[in-house]
Design a protein around this nucleic acid. Structure first.
Lengths: 249, 249
DNA sequence: AACAAAATGGAACGATCGTATCAATCCGGA
DNA sequence: TCCGGATTGATACGATCGTTCCATTTTGTT
């Protein structure tokens, strides 16, 4: 069990003592188009894995560099601070997911007028889940780690309204707007609640927290998302429809 | 933004260097029945608040003692290690919640045979939520913090299968067994999935992560659980029924 | 081959970490 | 009033934290 942590005032004080950032040589994106982004991606992959397991504060930069067998200065060179590294870890995967989601939205738009309420709600669930689900089940462990980081962060105010807000917010509005097409008379409160409840249920499933394993004494696995998703889909579709159809909403 | 963290091998190494615990004078429970549990409860309250805000690794013992204006040694005296303090924080509230839930189960048992599927599923949602919901909405901030700690931990494998497992596990089985009374033909996989999906949705709402505030630009508040719960209840009841009624379950 | 830029290796800084020690103080029962 | 255990104050220790610096090596381009 790891133990240490950091005191908030400390970091602030240290930063205040040296306010002038010494214009360090730091790359934003690699100029070479293809072959050798070794260290940078290795840092991202390793950090992603460790952040997923123990959270931002549970991982030190030295944990990452030791695991990846690289030197401490490389992290500072490529990413600057630990915060910026975390942000880079999240944004790398998010870009890919977000692009696919936007394509799905665009493809859906012309068909929307002819879709039933249920079909629209099913589209909300699928557009949210399928892009990340297919990647998680594809086998690349990085996507599982990313899903866990999001599941983790979405349930902590500090992250959900902090670093992750820029990632979570725009999509949320898109989804709520889509829900509104099925339920134009539902209030914003109802739409946002329905969406957030879906997020909670889906994130809990995506997080692969191992509870299904212990509850079933090893008979089922929380990593078997292929078996879980059909049930999760039914759950959230029925849930969102029930929430949005309430008279008082 | 706080920064530091701890390296796992470090704590283990340190513990290994001094394996003999020097039988310290540490109380398990206060002998005095009433008036003066000042410091001990102050530590618990402060730790609870900070753990809820930044998580276990985001809070140092000195954060707690500084905030509470007490001395560092008192934490070690009353609780031993930081891990034991965290466990004590969780278990204090859990005992109260768990007792009430067991009463609810007992009170429900004689009526179960005459209840509809829907009524049983509604009972699952209510018995899970109402004990903690009434306390959170009662105004004591400690219960909000506790809810956030659980919401946080339930979505991280490390906690959900670690320290929190002893808290989450027995209740989960009770609830799954209750669900099985409504859906005797549903598989364990279906029942556990339905229950866990409810946990995910409810925990996300209980966590009061502030996303409802930002999404609605301040119009609604994620802390207004009285407005959210009716919708969450409809959501999870419909969701669990839909999940359990699937033919392939 | 030569050279500037990109990247790494190695070491260090000061701050903070969890935990422990121990004398001084508090406090209820005798 | 006194006394012994419960509790606190003050301080310390070694380890680890995030971050930085600079000399050295690698690398792409001329």
């Amino acid at each position: 069990m790891p133990t240490a942590a950091a005191r908030k005032p400390a970091a602030e004080k240290r930063r205040l003592q040296k306010p002038v950032r010494t214009a360090k040589p730091r790359r934003e994106a690699k100029p070479q188009g293809e072959a050798k982004p070794k260290t940078r991606d290795l840092i991202l992959d390793t950090a992603e894995q460790l952040f997923a397991e123990r959270g931002f504060f549970g991982v030190s930069v030295r944990d990452i560099t030791d695991t990846a067998a690289i030197r401490l200065a490389s992290v500072n060179y490529h990413f600057g601070t630990k915060d910026e590294l975390f942000r880079a870890v999240v944004e790398r995967r998010f870009r890919e997911i977000d692009a696919e989601r936007r394509q799905c939205f665009a493809a859906l738009e012309p068909r929307l007028a002819r879709m039933s309420k249920r079909e629209i709600v099913e589209a909300v669930a699928d557009i949210f889940m399928l892009p990340i689900l297919t990647r998680v089940t594809s086998g690349e462990p990085g996507w599982t780690a990313y899903a866990q980081i999001i599941a983790h962060g979405a349930n902590v105010k500090m992250w959900a309204t902090g670093i992750l807000a820029s990632v979570l917010d725009p999509v949320a509005r898109d989804f709520a707007a889509l829900l509104a097409r099925a339920y134009p008379k539902a209030s914003d409160h109802t739409l946002f609640c329905a969406y957030e409840l879906m997020i909670g249920a889906m994130a809990h499933a995506l997080g692969q927290n191992g509870r299904l394993d212990t509850l079933s004494k090893g008979k089922y696995r929380s990593t078997d998302l292929a078996a879980i998703y059909p049930k999760a889909r039914r759950f959230v579709v029925a849930g969102m429809m029930a929430a949005c159809e309430a008279k008082d909403g």
